[in-house]
């Protein structure tokens, strides 16, 4: 019997090994985009974002209802109708960029010698919108949904372009919005400023109480797009695709 004394410990070791193996397999399968695979802090961030969105939507519904009532009651009252139209157009102008805007915000300056790619500019703009920016300009060019941030190259080097015009350094990006939120959106750990620092680019951030954003130069003309009128007036005909 003495010969088999190692059997018990070895069995035990194999059982433990088996458990670890299966655990290992499980943890490998647990990484994905499903909610149950996310870290607690990310889930908290999502809750925060959604709560904020719900609050803003509630305000929007109040606004729209007021607007609807006012429109209904001002039938044939020309000045009231004009007032409504102007307030509507002002709201739209935030998206089309067709008016001059004033407000507080953040100025980001990227100096001459910093290694910046067009995708970094896109990233900064993207993060600023996410942080609640209401308007953005890059070197005094107002950004709207149709703005094109890209690059072009000649024999010597590559240039960043905004609406097909070469972007000159220093690049000054201005954003209207709550200055602290805008700054936080860029400087949060692992955020765009951290990423740029890895490439030895250190944009300078500066809060400002009064910024003026010029309007876009010209409204584009639409060639391919036209308003879609659903055959039946039901929302179900729209190709909405949400998870």
């Amino acid at each position: 019997m003495r010969k088999y004394r190692w059997q018990a410990p070895l069995t035990l070791v194999f059982i433990v090994l088996g458990i670890f193996l299966s655990l290992q397999y499980q943890s490998q399968n647990l990484i994905g985009s499903d909610l149950s695979m996310q870290r607690t802090e990310n889930l908290i961030a999502m809750v925060r974002g959604l709560s904020e969105k719900r609050q803003k939507l509630a305000l929007e519904i109040v606004d729209l209802n007021m607007h609807f009532n006012s429109q209904q009651n001002s039938y044939l009252d020309e000045s009231k109708l004009a007032e409504n139209l102007i307030s509507d157009m002002n709201k739209m102008s935030f998206l089309t960029g067709s008016t001059t805007l004033n407000g507080a915000g953040l100025i980001i300056t990227i100096g001459q010698s910093m290694p910046i790619l067009y995708i970094d500019i896109i990233d900064i703009v993207n993060e600023l919108w996410a942080a609640g920016a209401e308007a953005i300009t890059i070197n005094e060019v107002r950004i709207n949904g149709q703005s094109v941030i890209f690059y072009t190259e000649d024999d010597y080097s590559m240039y960043i372009t905004i609406n097909n015009t070469r972007l000159e350094f220093p690049v000054v990006i201005k954003a209207l919005g709550e200055p602290n939120n805008l700054e936080k959106g860029l400087t949060l750990p692992g955020g765009i400023i951290d990423t740029l620092a890895l490439f030895k680019a250190y944009p300078i951030l500066e809060k400002s109480n009064s910024l003026t954003m010029p309007p876009v130069f010209n409204q584009p003309s639409h060639i391919f797009l036209s308003e879609y009128k659903p055959p039946e007036q039901t929302a179900a005909t729209e190709p909405a695709k949400t998870p």
């Binding site: 305000l59 606004d63 709201k91 935030f94 805007l101 407000g103 507080a104 209207l176 709550e178």
Partner: peptide, 15 residues
Amino acid sequence: PAYKGELQFDLSQVA
């Protein structure tokens, strides 16, 4: 489809 979200711009003013 159309944008269905909010349009709350209250931090800046139209000049």
